[in-house]
Amino acid sequence: MFKAKKIILVAVLLGLIYGLSCPWQRVTEPLFLGFLPAPMFYLLLVHIGFVGFMGYITYAQAESQKTKQGRNSPNMHDEEVKP
């Protein structure tokens, strides 16, 4: 993973952790989906953010693994020399 990408990921993680502290004090409204008060809804968004974060890291690692394997595989060279 590139250094810049790592820095962005750390910044996103810190942002999510900040969101976990529920900074939306004294907020009551609106009622989302007809039953979720705003503070709960925002925290649920943070939950989803964390899930997305871990999902993205898994995806990025898998992609980087694939690229590495592709580079090392002899088929890759075959494909490269084909017209």
Binding site: C22, Q25, R26, T28, F35, L36, P37, P39
Partner: peptide, 27 residues
């Protein structure tokens, strides 16, 4: 949720009726 807010609006917001759940305490 609506009825609880009528009883006490603090029941549906942070830091809650007792004022405990500040951002640092939650985290």
């Amino acid at each position: 949720i609506l009825k609880a807010a009528e009883i006490n609006p603090a029941l549906t917001q942070f830091p809650g009726p007792a004022g405990i759940w500040s951002p640092t305490m939650v985290l």
